[in-house]
Design a protein around this nucleic acid. Structure first.
Length: 875
RNA sequence: GGGUGGUUAGCUCAGCGGUAGAGCGCUGUCCUCACACGACAGAUGUCACAGGUUCAAAUCCUGUACCACCCACCA
């Protein structure tokens, strides 16, 4: 790779480095930007001048991967553009260290478990090492939180270093951690406000329940997975004689059967409506009812309703006010029940209890097999179970199917507010626009309120206590809500107003709410967390709503939706004006990179192999919303572009160091027609870039800026370099003025994408001209900077074409580019000829043409390419 | 079953009514005051398929197939 040193000529202006070494240049610039406080937000400037980013707080669970690099760089590109428009940019970073991933990580690293009832031990240090699975040390919630902070601090340092190294223009003073005291306070304050406004309620209700983690989960956290199962055809009796067969994949729920339904128009079962069916094994008498939900085409057309097989069961159970026969416990096992009393019914309680005794204590899956056996033995199983594939709901982080379990949970009422939430979502501008459809579809399809309580230990506790009645029962109807001033509180260790700690858990005393909030309950507040809604109203007013929410598409239904809901409920506002949805990085076989292969390619390694600018180039090439295949060859292209920029900038500086060196050049100096045409061409480009960036289409800008830049190097720079360096004074000044502006324009246009090389080159030259010590604070280029320079594009076009023809001829003759041209004849239209005559000197120099052998003839047509005849000279 | 996006050169993608484009890769040539991590030139395509609208369709409309994702289905 290393080129032959003997071929390398010493070149360039003295003082400028000979070759570009991003590995040393980039980190040095990171340090300088920090020292210069380049990305600091200025709270004294008005909201109108401010651009506020609601940065996604990455989950702190170990490693950032290439997918993170991709999307965060895209946000940074947008942000850097806004800064160059003169905006006071508010670009914070948060750490999402409040979730299950952190909890598990800390448990394993320190060998501890959180046990909220334990008292806090100041200065606690874990016994150390990784404990065996069974002997975790129990620690208080506060101690657990401290350990989390300890660990996440390490991770966060690593994350921050990577973000800085990538050139993210974050103001690192605006930093938050979702597990930190301030975020806990904000989350609890949000609870108080929503409770007061009536959006927050608690109720005992069937809820999606994960039996592995033993917690409720929200609809948004559930996902479908295809699993194999078996249809069991089970014969049911009818109370006054007769029988029918239902087909089910969940025979273990037979004991939880509360009704049987068939379609109202199904003639096979119409006569049965109003009668009672008798379940096999348990002899429970359940009503046979008509329901639209039953599909006559499916199975046998008649189905059992259990508490609870799925959401349809829940709905029917509610509508018909059926009894609750909960047999699946919170641990996923069948709980003991008694058919002789309570909600359970049986015509033969002794037999029912005997049958059930063989199932109690088994996990649902075991019970399924066992029930099949029992049914078979009882002779009520019609035929062998038939295999089938079915979609079953799982918690996205879990491995066992979700169950519906009735339990007391806190909910936020979203179902009653769908129209308003749809309207709010529509007020934000979505980029790309079609992503709004996903939001719309999700909101329309919601069928459960947002369950925000989790039966976990690690997380933000509810600032709530309950009185304990004299009989020892908890009185959930009279929650004691904390005062706002006390937040954050932990009801497991803090005491409610009017009570003393001694009364905890006693009749006539109180208990703390044992649950913690879903992490989304906190992260849905990110724009209000960074604006300091909870403790600084003036600052909040200056930063809320934000301008931009960048995020990925798979969390539209969670993060975007919840944030929109909370902003509306709290502030009657949208949370942000724009949503930019980034795509995914996919591996060449189209799998999701961030979940598989991507983790093996660490961003740090790639930075070492290529450069930050190279990685950023790759991210900048991808449009918002569009998945991108991981392709290292694009890094190489980015690398090459940065090197080319380095060399072109250096070379341009060399031209400027000729006779016109030091002169203050401006639009008035641009007198040559070719220069005017070039500048005009750039002016159009610059204006288009504003429009595209305004539409968040940065990828389009990079595409044509890159193209224009290579064209500049290959054509315009080649044409004018001789004149600039050694031409007649006025002509040289014209070229230099144009080159100086051109360089400053390209450095600025590339700055959001390639912040390092552009800053480096900017430092060589452009400081004085634009009075901006950093390209990243320089104004985005505008046509107005060169308003007086306007020229005929034809000059540039016809000159380019003739030069191309000369080069093609030399290539065909296997001659070098500088080989002399003895005779050059150009036939073209008279407008083209007139234009060409204005740039002949440049053409002669660039093509090494003998002036005496040059002739331009007006014999062609202006709408056709000129006909060029080349005769080479001898060396 | 509903929705969204995609299908263009070997690969990765741009173009989204007016003669098919770029980069990578490939072939050949060339060291020009920067850059060989360069320059110049060249080969490479029924723009998924079928209909329709239009003077004109890769581009607009309808349908089909395939890929990806989101949602629903869960007896």
């Amino acid at each position: 790779m290393e080129k032959d040193a003997s071929l390398k000529k010493p070149a360039g202006k003295p003082g400028l480095p000979a070759s570009y070494l991003p590995a040393s240049v980039e980190p040095a610039l990171c340090d300088r930007w920090e020292k210069d406080k380049l990305y600091y937000y200025d709270p004294s400037r008005p909201r109108n001048d401010t651009f506020v980013v609601d940065t996604p707080p990455p989950t702190v669970s170990g490693e950032l991967h290439i997918g993170h690099v991709f999307s965060y760089v895209q946000t940074d590109i947008i942000t850097r553009y806004q800064r160059m428009l003169g905006k006071n940019v508010f670009y914070p970073m948060g750490w999402d260290d409040n979730g299950l991933p952190t909890e598990r990580r800390v448990q394993n690293l320190f060998g501890v478990r959180c046990s909220p009832a334990l008292p806090y031990i100041p200065g606690f240090k874990p016994a150390g090492g990784k404990a065996g699975l069974r002997d975790y040390e129990q620690v208080s919630r506060r101690n657990f939180l401290e350990l989390c902070s300890l660990q996440t601090l390490e991770d966060e340092k690593k994350y921050e270093a990577l973000w800085r190294r990538l050139g993210l223009s974050v103001d690192w003073r605006q930093n938050y951690s979702t597990v930190g005291e301030y975020c806990r306070k904000t989350s609890q304050l949000s609870f108080l406000d929503l409770h007061q406004k009536g959006y927050m309620y608690s109720t005992e209700a069937p809820t999606l329940w994960d039996t592995t983690f033993k917690t409720a989960v929200a609809q948004a956290e559930a996902e479908d997975r295809e699993v194999s199962g078996f249809f069991h055809d089970i014969k049911f009796g009818v109370e006054d004689g007769g029988e029918f067969t239902i087909s089910t994949t969940r025979p273990e729920l037979l004991a939880a059967c509360v009704a049987v339904v068939a379609h109202p128009e199904d003639s096979r079962y119409k006569p049965l409506f109003g009668k009672r069916a008798v379940t096999p094994l348990f002899k429970a008498r359940v009503p046979i009812m008509p329901s639209e939900h039953a599909n006559p085409e499916k199975g046998t057309g008649i189905m059992m309703i259990c508490t609870f097989g799925d959401i349809a069961d829940v709905e029917l159970w509610r509508k018909e006010k059926l009894p609750l026969r909960q047999i699946i416990g919170r641990d996923g096992k069948l709980s003991p029940v008694d058919f002789a009393c309570g909600p359970f019914d049986s015509a033969d309680p002794a037999a029912a209890n005997a049958a059930y005794a063989q199932l109690a204590g088994l996990y649902a899956k075991q019970a399924r097999a066992k029930t099949g056996k029992l049914l078979s033995e009882a002779g009520v199983l019609a035929g062998e179970p038939k295999p089938t594939r079915q979609a079953v709901k799982f918690y996205e982080k879990g491995e066992l199917p979700l169950e519906f379990v009735s339990s007391r949970q806190w909910f936020i009422n979203v179902l009653d507010n769908k129209p308003q939430l749809l309207e709010q979502g529509g007020k934000a501008a979505w980029h790309p626009g079609y992503m709004f459809k996903r939001y719309e579809q999700w909101v329309k399809g919601l069928n459960q309120d947002w369950c925000i309580s989790r039966q976990r230990y690690f997380g933000v506790p509810f600032p709530v206590w309950y009185p304990v009645k004299d009989n020892g029962d908890t009185d959930f109807s009279k929650p004691i809500i904390s005062e706002a001033e006390r937040l954050p509180v932990d009801p497991q260790t803090d005491c409610p107003p009017g009570y003393t700690e001694a009364r905890r858990g006693l009749p006539g005393g109180f208990v703390g709410d044992p649950d913690v909030m879903d992490t989304w309950a906190t992260s849905s507040l990110t724009p209000m967390i960074s604006s300091r809604w909870a403790d600084d109203k003036a600052r909040h007013a200056g930063l809320f709503p934000a301008d931009l929410r960048p995020q990925a598409h798979e969390i539209i239904r969670t993060w975007a939706f919840y944030t929109i809901a909370k902003a509306w409920m709290h502030e009657n506002s949208i949370p942000w004006h724009n949503v930019a949805i980034s795509g995914w990085v996919v591996s060449p076989d189209k799998g999701k990179m961030s979940k598989s292969k991507g983790k093996t390619v660490s961003p740090e390694a790639l930075l070492g192999l290529y450069s930050a600018d190279a990685l950023r180039y790759w991210a900048g090439k991808a449009k918002l919303g569009q998945d991108t295949v991981y392709d290292e060859s694009v890094f190489k292209v980015g690398m090459r572009l940065a090197t080319k920029l380095f060399n072109a900038a250096k070379f341009t500086m060399l031209q400027l160091s000729g006779p016109a060196a030091g002169a203050r050049l401006g639009a008035a100096d641009i007198t040559e027609p070719l220069d005017k045409a070039w500048v005009d061409h750039l002016k159009a480009l610059v204006e288009t870039s504003r429009e595209d960036f305004g539409n968040y289409d940065y990828a389009a800008v990079l595409l044509y800026v890159e193209k224009a830049f290579w064209d500049f190097c290959d054509t315009y720079l080649e044409l004018v370099k001789n004149r600039a360096y050694s031409g007649k004074p006025q002509a040289a000044r014209s070229a230099c003025a144009s080159l100086e502006w051109t360089l400053s324009v390209f450095l600025r246009l590339f700055a959001p994408f390639l912040p390092f090389i552009t800053e480096e080159a900017w430092g060589w030259s452009c400081t004085a001209a634009l009075k901006a010590p950093s390209v990243h604070k320089a104004p985005w280029p505008s046509a107005a900077e060169m308003s007086s320079a306007a020229g005929d594009q034809r000059v540039l076009e016809v000159t380019r074409k003739v030069l191309e023809a000369v080069r093609t001829h030399k290539a065909a003759e296997k001659r070098s580019v500088k080989w002399p041209v003895a005779k050059l004849t150009v036939e073209c239209g008279h407008l083209q000829a007139a234009a060409l005559k204005l740039s002949l000197d440049d053409l002669i120099a660039a093509g090494n043409v003998d002036r005496a052998g040059l002739s331009v003839q007006e014999t062609g047509a202006d709408d056709k390419d000129p006909v060029v005849v080349v005769e080479l000279g001898s060396a």
